[in-house]
């Protein structure tokens, strides 16, 4: 579903990403770990088409993002570290607006159903987003992924700043999407969540994917050890 082939990004003389090869299939949750500046967000931005690769290719559902930027976006949902919505609209209105941009039309009842599925409390559905916490906004993001019927989810440190309960709720939502066959690529610093929800884990350092393995192959303690050894090497 998500494929990067020899993906390279340079900013002048700075090599942000070096020949990345990655493949996230249906039902996979690929967690990218790494220190700040390792190239995780660059990878996500390349999949989103926000930046153009210097070399290599990014594909979403077989579509080359460089050439079919707009079309490829109909298959993805994106949740950044701090998902922001229109503060003067309600969660319901925000959901309807962004789903509409993806040419998905729903009745009010259907939209409420999607917000419920994403776990947003009913009494907040029709409140302005300016009253929402970060966790609530993330849930609207998940509802949007459901509304778009997204085949892939791109997450950039989505649990950063969430309290443990909200973080746990978010993990459960990811597992729910996984069960629906959604392919997820998540950049994160949270080793615990990576181990908890991930099917695959990759560790990046200075723009290079230095380690990649299945999550089930390691324990949480091993993961932490491998991570620290890798980034300190």
């Amino acid at each position: 579903m998500l494929n990067a082939t020899q993906l390279t990004k340079e900013y002048g003389n700075f090599l942000a990403l070096n020949s990345l090869n990655i493949s996230v299939n249906i039902g996979d949750i690929y967690c990218l770990l790494g220190a700040n500046g390792a190239g995780k967000s660059t990878t996500i931005n390349l999949f989103l088409g926000f930046i153009q690769p210097t070399n290599g290719k990014v594909e979403i559902n077989g579509l080359d993002v460089s050439q079919k930027a707009t079309e490829s976006k109909q298959y993805i949902a994106y949740i950044p570290e701090n998902l922001m919505l229109y503060p003067n609209l309600t969660g319901l209105e925000n959901l309807a607006y962004f789903a509409g941009l993806a040419k998905k039309r729903y009745t009010k009842t259907q939209l409420i159903g999607l917000l419920n599925e994403a776990g947003l409390q009913a009494d907040f559905h029709e409140k302005r987003v300016s009253a929402y916490s970060k966790g609530m906004r993330q849930k609207v993001g998940i509802a949007l992924a459901l509304a778009k019927d997204a085949k892939a989810l791109l997450l950039d440190e989505p649990t950063s700043g969430l309290d443990p309960q909200a973080s746990n709720e978010f993990s459960n939502l990811l597992l729910k999407l996984k069960s629906k066959g959604v392919a997820t690529l998540m950049a994160t610093h949270d080793l615990f969540r990576a181990k908890q929800v991930g099917t695959h884990i990759g560790i990046m350092k200075q723009g290079v994917l230095v380690k990649s393995f299945k999550a089930e192959e390691v324990s949480l303690a091993d993961l932490e050890k491998i991570y620290l050894e890798t980034i300190n090497a």
Partner: peptide, 14 residues
């Protein structure tokens, strides 16, 4: 400035 641009740009609309 209000942070909605990334979400907007991630939609299939030019």
């Amino acid at each position: 400035e209000q942070g909605t641009l990334p979400l907007l740009l991630s939609q299939p609309v030019q």
